[in-house]
Design a protein around this nucleic acid. Sequence first.
RNA 1: UGGGGCGUAGCCAAGUGGUAAGGCAGCGGAUUUUGAUUCCGCCAUUCGCAGGUUCGACUCCUGCCGCCCCAGCCA
Length: 561
Amino acid sequence: MSAVEPAAETEAGRDFLRDIVAADLAAGRCAAVVTRFPPEPNGYLHIGHAKAIAINFGIAEEFGGRCHLRFDDTNPAKEAQEYIDAIQRDIHWLGFDWGSHLYYASDYFEQLYEWAEHLIRQGLAYVDDQSADEIRAARGTLTAPGTSSPFRDRSVAENLDLFRRMRAGEFRNGARVLRAKIDMGSGNINLRDPVLYRILHAAHPRTGTRWCIYPTYDFAHGQSDAIEGVTHSLCSLEFEDHRPLYDWLIEHLPVPARPRQYEFARLNLGYTVMSKRFLKRLADEGRVSGWDDPRMPTLAGLRRRGVPPAAIREFVRRVGVARANSTVDLAMFDAALRDTLNRTAPRRMAVLRPVKLVIENYPPGLSEEIEAVNNPEDASAGTRMLPFGRELYIERDDFLETPPKNFYRLAPGREVRLRYAYFVTCREAVKDAAGNIIELHCIYDPATKGGNAPDGRRVRGTIHWVSAAHALPAEIRLYDPLFTRPDPGADGDMMADLNPNSLETLADARLEPALAEDDGTVQFERLGYFCRDPDSTPGRLVFNRTIGLHDTWTKMHADGR
RNA sequence: UGGGGCGUAGCCAAGUGGUAAGGCAGCGGAUUUUGAUUCCGCCAUUCGCAGGUUCGACUCCUGCCGCCCCAGCCA
């Protein structure tokens, strides 16, 4: 054991994967750990992938090894360059880097083809002329063994000839496949002569029409791992049954290395659907604005919603790694998000549902600047100046004509603090003919500038505000979970569980001027975290709510306390 | 009478024979110019169930129960 151990080796609460890697390193079974993240470029990455990314890149990093990004592009029918680009962008955004180790399974097509011929020469693979239906029927069932194909015992010469002609394009799609000759009676269905190559006359995003036969996942994955020198091939639980096939191929092929596959449970999140297929449908059918709709669990969607990559990394770290299937409470994601944002997000003032407040005794035309701290959690974030004047906007919810017992915001005759500014006392609620409150008339105490009374009197409530003369109009988009239940689709139809109220738009919000320049996610004090949406134009800002603040007041109300 | 996995609190999750970590949620309370944050306290006599081995079992053995994955020429 070296004098300098990786920190991870001594940390408590390490997971079983890290234990395996540490043991292999300690025993000298490998000199350095090499992992890989192998997405198929058939859609956008989502938060479930973030777990796999964090595991593969994270373990490599912690143990001083490396992690490859390898596109598993073996099925041209579903794959596209758009996805290849998006996946790379999203992994980088998440904070991981593959350096020069960017690979494609399609880079290995020639080598894989040669290995397929090797298998044929060894009598371990054969060309099957049966149709897909016939193969399926002969495969048997979960409880009944399969039966051999009539083509199973073709000669090596005939198999070689046929396989070469498959490659040459002599046959139509589906006419023949190459199968491994393993065991039609195996209890593991993956071993009942699995298909290794199929005919697909389709253009591939990278190899174009150079090939018309493509290796299956099973024939490509382990061999690609071996070619790249991957030591630990970490994947999710559903590939467990494939491991015997993975090992069989590695053992029977002259591969340059001996990778090992280990499986962990994939991430499931409450109120969320991780199926790429379903997410694609939501985007394609216009149920959301696209793959990057802020309600989507995609990394692109989370980014647009204002979720910082550090929050996602923290979330998956807290979730841990194990082999038990589980569904993580959405609240755990929210907590990681709030923790991250609380430490880093600049504070701003914004009024979502404005009502005008007029300070009767404040000189008309006068305007002053008030200093406010940018982040009470971080002194280095400094301060900024807020314009203040006779007319302000405050939150409609912050005034109640007949306040309940525990309400300590503004009400007739009551004094509250305008954050960072002055104490104001409400004199009158001005209403229109219909009885709607249009203006609140108050008086302020000039001696309370900054928010403290020299006479030591206290107020219970502090509310946020924005200067009417200086405020920026904005549209605010409030998001709720895309689904109405923690287990969407449990009754059979995920579409039926879509939340019809997942988006609420507020058209007339007012923001403090500094918000015109902010990038990144900020906190609107007392409301939540928000970030500017790319739909913003110079004349009209659009902000997304990333997540609200904890709100015990609303909660007390809901509880009827 | 197919094969492979998994069952520790409401949700994640440590624990690998010596007497149940931690996080989230929840519940109290303190501080607070965000009803936020922060802080402090409470929250599994019990580890799917039943037997067995042992001075001692979440950990070992046996049996049962429950849940998940596999019958694509998807990955």
